[in-house]
Design a protein around this nucleic acid. Structure first.
Length: 951
RNA sequence: GCCCGGGUGGCGGAAUCGGUAGACGCGGAGGUCUCAAACACCUCUGGCCGCAAGGUCGUGCGGGUUCGACUCCCGCCCUGGGCACCA
């Protein structure tokens, strides 16, 4: 817009000391400089908080993107800052800082596109974030702001990796232990090696393998999303629905590759159980519970002709008599060795054979087809059930029947045992395959929904519900007539007695794929010897620094080649001569890097002790800030605020690392985050013209019930704020226009913290006007001199002040900043309406209460009111209980449930006098219209309800 | 499909041990100031009927409990999010 070409309006019209955006900007710069110079918010490296206690306050740290901030980003940061400032004013020692999650893909992709080193991009982005966030006046400790890309930080990320690598999970003790205990256990014969041989009989390579089999960080061949075009594996969310890479649109295949894994599944039960001890939103706990996916079932052995018995997992052992076939996952190892060369029977149904000449060919074709599909495709294809006969037969251990073993993609290799007993009558998926391949369906639970309980031929779907067991007896056990739960118990008892099965708990949670074929991440502190055995890099040699390379691109190779991470081409770095205790030898470094989650798994700990060069965190300091408080407390950060998008991954991974470190005696706290709060998001309207192209949202006007862009009608929708929708608003713009204090106040006033809401730039002026009015009530707008008087306030104002203090304190404690602000506005509106000089005894508490929200303006007012010490550590006002007691009470009076009048009586009036006064009200008498009074309800201090007689 | 949230004026929201629905803010209308505009300030602002006094309807929909229901109970509808072949 072209305002800058118009004559400047007469500035002298505006009083020089009016609280304008310009003045706010000047004040803010001044106070920020003073806080920085005085080190106001630097937290001493203390382990003594004094009588007020300590508080460790944290935000989820940002990834510094090149797009910079929009006004939605700092919502949580402002909220924690407001709360932190309140806590300081109520005597707490507050630890609050902000670091940067600086490894990540965008910087790497920018490097691929432009050749700029990711470190250059990242550092520039961090600097920009610091400047933008700094303008908001957040009371962070600047000396504790870390970045995950700092050598002094990732050195300890690598160190923690080595701790995990150097540990195993002792199931009997339910905790991680150092690997040397495992070696001792193997040596002493207390623990059996994977293949059962004695430790002393194993070669060095075999010993390494025996240890790797139980390490918490281990290498394994796992199916991954392999993208040959990009030369890397991809995360599921980087693969499109069409099974191609989001970037470049290359085909993505499922492929088994050797990758680093973290044995998070060892912690499944503790990660689940300890959720109950955390003060987290119930929704996040539920998501984690679902993700961990504990289910109790039974593992049952099905004998297979000519083979080892097949183990299946089921949660419905009660339906064992209805198992008419068995299904194994396409990846099941049984298929690698046991599939026969020829069909066992000449007259097999055509559909079982999939048109192939032999089971081996049928299974191979099926496996190849499944392997070519992405996980997504595989799950999308639920409509058409497919499967082939393996040529093998098993025996149902309950009925003794010979039943066929099928291969079908709906059975997943990674869950349970990768094999199921199919009960088509009572499982929908089994039912569908049975219908598709014409397999027998035998009901064993009587359906109570009207269908024929004994003949499934007319059923439209499976019956998964409860009911009475039928057709479920052999010579040794009978379930007939039992309910599902009782039948489960009885069959399990029988199976266990026969040695055919055992109760087992299974989890959906999988081990964590921890390596990436990328450049911009933490190198693994691992080297390999000539035999391919992995060795940890000694702690004293950390960090293993990330070398420079000239090409950040993962190498595009042919389909079958192993991926070549960018680091593999840094030959001088890869080849290393080390003395690991047996003399100098040549080793090759691990060339994968860690995933972006690594740094965020432990950054809260580094905030505590960022300069420590001896340890990742000093134990005393960790105990002080994060240690458990009482019997069942887990310890952890006192309040962690961030978006709900991290409900599962980040918050599960960091819990896992924390627990490992706790088990190893490195930490006193059992959980990283004692209390979690999810803030909502700020979203924004976006507008498209009739071509569907986004137009600049800040140039759209609302008129005649529609939206217009340069006199063209446009359509409005709602979405994320950002460049692509042309609806971004930066905090800088708001600071320029109104000042940071206004922006802070607006973001806190627009709604409860946990609720998402639309941004509305034109509404920001409301918060600005409020500050302007406070300013005008306390200072002369022309001279800037305080106008407050030392006389005491009138009784009404005094009561309102104390009621406000009490209310604001309550709201602040509960993070309800929007209603706290509303109370402050009400108090100030009252002062405005009085149109008289404000008493100092009101002005000062008002300024102090404003300080958490608008710290710069509050400091400025505080100082102009004659205080030389800053406001940051001034005590928050305390309400005088004597002044909270009202002298009169106003009762609304209802007649027949409708409010007809109101009644003011002295506080403490007895019920009888309230009732009499209410009935005497003319409006009440009129509403009664001559009817008799059946009953009068008087709720002390609340309401009077008059019930007229019927008729 | 399963599991969590959430539906209140034109808009963001307030009020839930059941007790005057719409605090506070935006927007809107009118006014003051100004040559004028912007800023600022003042008044009004849920719908309908009414000159007014007042009446009446009203918290997604339909029932219920109660002197009294946004709040509790039953049955729906809509919507945001998470998970999704987990045997």
């Amino acid at each position: 817009m072209a305002t800058d070409t118009l004559p400047t309006p007469a500035e002298e019209d505006v009083p020089p000391q009016r609280y304008s955006g310009l003045l706010a900007g000047e004040i803010e710069a001044r106070w920020q400089a003073r806080w920085a110079a005085d080190g106001t918010f630097v937290v001493p490296r203390t382990t003594d908080a004094g009588p007020g206690g300590k508080f460790f306050l944290m935000d989820m740290f940002p990834y510094p993107s090149d797009a910079g901030l929009h006004v939605g980003h700092p919502l949580g940061y402002i909220a924690t800052d407001v709360y932190g400032r309140y806590l300081r004013m109520t005597g707490h020692t507050v630890l609050h800082t902000l670091g940067y999650d600086a490894y990540g893909l965008p910087a790497e992709q920018y490097a691929i596109a432009t050749g700029t080193h990711p470190r250059v991009t990242t550092e520039a982005n961090i600097a920009r974030y610091r400047r933008q966030i700094g303008r908001l006046g957040l009371a962070h400790d600047p000396t504790r702001s870390v970045a995950t890309t700092d050598e002094s930080f990732y050195r300890w990320t690598q160190w923690i990796f080595l701790q995990i690598y150097g540990s195993w999970y002792d199931e009997t003790q339910g905790r991680a232990r150092p690997i040397r205990d495992l070696i001792a256990g193997y040596e002493a014969g207390e623990l059996t090696t994977p293949d059962g041989r004695r430790w002393s009989e194993l070669s060095s390579v075999e010993r390494a393998a025996a240890l790797d089999a139980r390490r918490l960080a281990y290498r394994s061949k796992v199916p991954v999303n392999w993208c040959p075009g990009l030369g890397t594996v991809l995360a599921n969310e980087e693969v499109t629905a069409e099974g191609r890479s989001e970037i470049g649109n290359f085909p993505v295949l499922r492929r088994e590759l050797t990758q680093w894994m973290m044995r998070i599944t060892a912690y499944a039960d503790r990660l689940l159980a300890d959720l109950d001890r955390l003060d987290w939103p119930e929704s996040v706990k539920t998501m984690q519970r679902n993700w961990i996916g504990r289910s109790e079932g039974v593992q049952i052995l099905f004998p297979v002709e000519g083979q080892e018995p097949l183990e299946v997992f089921t949660t419905r052992p009660d339906t064992l008599f209805g198992a008419t076939y068995v299904v194994v996952a396409p990846e099941h190892p049984l298929l690698d060795r046991a599939v026969p060369e020829a069909w066992p029977d000449a007259d097999l149904p055509e559909r079982w054979r999939a048109g192939e000449a032999s089971p081996r060919r049928a299974v191979e074709a099926y496996r190849a087809r499944v392997a070519a599909m992405s996980e997504r495709d595989r799950q999308a294809a639920t409509g058409d059930r497919t499967g082939v006969f393996s040529g093998l037969y098993a025996t149902n251990p309950a009925t003794g029947e010979r039943i066929a073993v099928f291969v079908a993609d709906y059975v997943l290799a990674g869950y349970g045992t990768g094999a199921i007993m199919a009960v088509p009558a009572h499982d929908q998926r089994d039912f569908e395959l049975a219908r598709a391949l014409d397999l027998p369906i035998r009901p064993v639970v009587a359906a109570g929904d009207g269908r024929d309980p004994r003949d499934a031929s007319s059923w439209a779907d499976a019956y998964p519900g409860a009911g009475e067991l039928i057709c479920s007896a052999n010579g040794h056990v009978s379930l007939d007539g039992l309910g599902v739960d009782e039948a489960k118990r009885r069959i399990v008892t029988w199976l266990e007695g026969e040695g055919l099965g055992a109760a087992r708990v299974t989890y959906k949670l999988r081990d964590w794929l921890f390596s990436r074929q990328r450049y911009w991440g933490e190198p693994f502190p691992i080297v390999y010897d000539d035999e391919g055995v992995a060795h940890p890099v000694p702690e004293t040699m950390l960090p293993v620094t990330l070398p420079d390379v000239d090409d950040y691109r993962p190498r595009a190779t042919d389909l079958d080649a192993e991926p070549q991470p960018p680091l593999s081409r840094a030959e001088e770095w890869v080849q290393v001569t080390l003395d690991l205790g047996d003399g100098s030898r040549r080793y090759r470094r691990e060339t994968n890097t860690m995933p972006q989650w690594a740094g965020s798994c432990w950054y809260e700990l580094r905030y505590l002790d960022p300069d420590n060069e001896e340890r990742f965190v000093d134990p005393e300091i960790e105990r002080f800030w994060m240690g458990p408080r009482d019997g069942d407390d887990t310890g952890g950060v006192d309040l962690y605020v961030g978006g709900v998008e991290h409900a599962v991954l980040h918050l599960l991974y960091s819990r896992f690392w924390h627990k490992v470190l706790f088990d190893l005696g490195q930490l006193s706290s059992e959980e990283p985050f004692r209390r979690l709060f999810n803030q909502g998001y700020i979203q924004a309207y976006a507008y498209t013209d009739r071509r569907g192209v986004h137009v600049r949202a800040d140039e759209v006007v609302e008129r005649d019930g529609g939206f217009w862009y340069h006199d063209e009608p446009v359509e409005r929708h709602y979405g994320k704020m950002g460049k692509s929708l042309k609806n971004g608003v930066s905090p800088d713009e708001m600071c320029d226009l109104y000042g940071a204090d206004t922006l802070r106040l607006y973001e806190m006033a627009m709604g409860p913290l946990d609720v998402s809401r639309p941004w509305e730039t034109r509404a920001v002026v409301g918060s600005h006007r409020f500050l302007q009015r406070v300013w005008r009530n306390l200072l002369d707008e022309h001279t800037g001199v305080p106008t407050v008087v030392d006389e005491p306030p009138d009784a009404e104002t005094d009561r309102l002040l104390h009621a406000t203090i009490a209310a604001v304190r309550t709201e602040m404690e509960h993070l309800r900043f929007n209603t706290a602000i509303a109370r402050l506005i009400e108090l100030n509106n009252h002062l405005t309406a009085q149109a008289a000089p404000v008493a100092r005894a009101v002005a000062e508490p008002l300024v102090a209460m404003l300080a958490p929200f608008a710290p710069h303006a509050a400091e400025e007012l505080w100082s102009r009111l004659g205080h030389h010490r800053g406001l940051a550590f001034e005590p928050f006002p305390v309400a005088d209980p004597a002044k909270l007691v009202a002298t009169t009470v106003t009762y609304p009076v209802q007649v027949a449930g409708k409010v007809r009048g109101s009644l003011e009586v002295p506080a403490g009036s007895d019920e009888q006098s309230v009732r009499d006064a209410a009935l005497a009200l003319p409006k009440v008498r009129r509403a009664l219209a001559g009817r008799a009074v059946a009953k009068v309800v008087v709720v002390q201090g609340r309401i009077v309800s008059v019930v007229p007689a019927a008729g």
